[in-house]
Each structure stands twice: as C-alpha cells, then as structure tokens.
Amino acid sequence: MINSSLAQQVEISGYFTQDSARLGERVGFVLKAKYPETSQLLFPDSTFDFSPLVFLEKKTFISNTVDGITQDSAIYYLSNFSLEPSVFLALPVYELNRYDSLTYFTNEAELKLKLMLDSIPEELVFQENNVYQPLKKSFNWLLFGLISAAVILVLGVLFTLFKDRIKAIFKKNREKIRWIQFELKWKRLSTLLAQNPNQELADEVIGLWKGYLESLTAQPYQEWTSSEISDALQDKEVFKALRSIDMIIYAGKEGKTEEATAYLFEIAKTTYKEKLNQIRNERASR
C-alpha cells in the first residue's frame, strides 16, 4: 500500500465536507485523484468496508484532462452511528498496472460526533414517582445456550447444503473481477500500441494476453510459442494475430495492430465465458 505523500505521479486527497455531524446524519466525503492520463485508476465502490461509517450513496464526476494530467473526483455520502467522539476514514485508489495493481490511501480524515445537548444543567430535576418498578429477573443462561446451539446447528446444516453453491459464486465473482481488470488494461494498451507500435508496448500486450489465458486455463501460455498456442487452440488465425505483434517485438517492424488485438481480445472473451460455464456445470453436477 502506498500513501499519497509518497507517490510521485499519482496524487490523491480525501476530506469530509464538514468537521462534525450528528448521530446518523448524512455527510459527504470528497475523494480526488490527479494522475497522468496514461494511467488507469479505480475508485472504491459500495462493496468497500466504510466501517464504522455506513455507506449511503456515491456521486461521480466527469474526468478532466489538461496537458496530459487527468483529474477525477467523487463524493461518498455516509452516516455515522458510532458513539466515539471522533471517527477517522482513509479511502484507497487503485492503479491498474501490467500484471498487478498499486493501492494509494488518502490521509485519515476526522469526523467529530456532534451531541444534541450543548450542555448539562448544574442542578438535575427528578420527577417524583412512588410506583414500584418490577425487578429484573436473572439472565437464563441455559435457555441462551440452547438457542445458541440451535442457531449454530442450523447454520452448520445450511452451510453443508449450500457450500458448493457458495464456492461457485465466489469463483464466478472472482473471475468477473479479473475480467474487468484485464479488459481495462487491454483496451488501454491496445490503443497505445495502435498509436505508437514499438517493441516495449507489443511485448506488454502479448504478456498481458498470455498471462490472462494462463490464469483461466492453467496452461503454460507464457512458455508456449505462437505456433504452440495456435495448435493448442486449434485456431490458425490466432497464429496470424500473434505473429503480427511478434514482428514488432523481434523484427522491429511497424504495422497496423487493431485487427490482431481485436481478434486476441475475442479469444480471451470466449475463454472467459467458457470458464464461467465450467464453474456453472461443476456446481450443477454436484
């Protein structure tokens, strides 16, 4: 994790729109990011853990790019139900790189709890009441233990019955996240390669594609040659697409890469859908 004060190219900041708020009051948290337009940044969504604050709504704004520098911002509307005098919040921003991602955190912003009573009177006035109040009965630990055991037993049975489904849902969501990250990186690199075909970008495009297919199929795509990949997929067009990009890497030749990258993207998309079907079929067969 990288703090914004240490980042040289990416600058992020976050702050509450007010210093204090009442219990449960709606308050905004502003998140801003400033970075080179060639970078790809993602802001957290509603799945992020904002505790002890409760997420209500996120409002995003259109990115603004001037002289190669992009500025993004969003407002997160939150509520505080903590009785602590102050709560602190630092939000992350994710930068997508070639094979992994970097995480930047804002400095912690403080939100103070605003109490409804400004002051307590020096002399307390009590209301007289001569009505007898019922005494509280001792806690029934035996009943509590029986209920707790029954709840644990029911949860255990439910988990046993639905564990395969839960695992399948987890795998499916994990693949969807990987696909979104791959698609964002691929479109950015493909566009850059089409604009400026060079060895470094071509190698990065091929490495991204092979690495993603290897994660889907567990096959050694990064070790295979273009002809071996074509044989494994039984698709001669794949060889042509890879070959056109290989010529940039090994021969330093320039050429149009839009058709090749588009075809390789469709191969990755088809393999991704086959992976989802495989997960669905595994769950159905159990």
Rank of each mutant, 00 (worst) to 15 (best):
S5G: 01
L6H: 13
L6S: 05
Q8N: 13
E11K: 15
Y15M: 11
F16D: 00
Q18W: 01
D19N: 13
S20A: 09
E25F: 02
E25H: 06
V27C: 00
F29N: 02
T38L: 07
T38A: 12
S39K: 12
L41W: 05
L42R: 13
D45M: 00
T47Y: 08
T47H: 07
F48A: 09
L56D: 13
K58T: 03
K59M: 10
F61V: 02
I62A: 09
N64M: 07
N64T: 09
T65A: 07
V66C: 05
D67I: 03
I69H: 03
T70M: 01
D72G: 06
S73A: 14
A74M: 11
I75A: 00
L78T: 02
L78P: 04
F81M: 03
S82W: 10
S82P: 02
P85R: 02
F88C: 07
L89E: 06
N97P: 02
D100S: 04
S101I: 09
S101H: 12
F105I: 00
N107K: 15
E108T: 14
L113T: 01
L113R: 14
K114F: 07
S119R: 14
I120C: 03
I120T: 10
L124W: 08
V125W: 08
N129G: 01
N129H: 09
Y132E: 13
L135D: 12
F139K: 11
W141Y: 15
G145P: 03
L146I: 15
I152G: 12
L155F: 15
L158K: 12
F159E: 05
F159L: 08
T160A: 14
K163T: 15
D164P: 06
R165G: 12
I166V: 15
I169L: 11
I169T: 10
R174D: 11
K176P: 03
I177G: 12
R178H: 10
L184D: 09
S190E: 04
L193A: 06
A194E: 13
A194R: 08
Q195L: 15
Q195V: 04
Q195W: 10
E200W: 08
A202V: 08
E204S: 12
V205Y: 06
V205P: 02
K210S: 09
L213I: 11
E214T: 04
S215C: 00
S215M: 03
S215D: 04
T217A: 09
T217D: 10
Y221I: 04
Y221G: 00
Y221H: 02
W224T: 01
S227Q: 12
I229K: 04
D231S: 11
D231G: 03
R243L: 14
R243N: 15
I249L: 00
K256Y: 09
K256P: 09
T257R: 01
T261F: 06
A262F: 12
Y263I: 07
F265A: 01
E266V: 07
T271I: 10
T271R: 15
K275W: 01
L276T: 07
N277P: 07
Q278F: 13
R280F: 08
R280C: 03
R280N: 15
N281W: 13
E282C: 02
A284V: 11
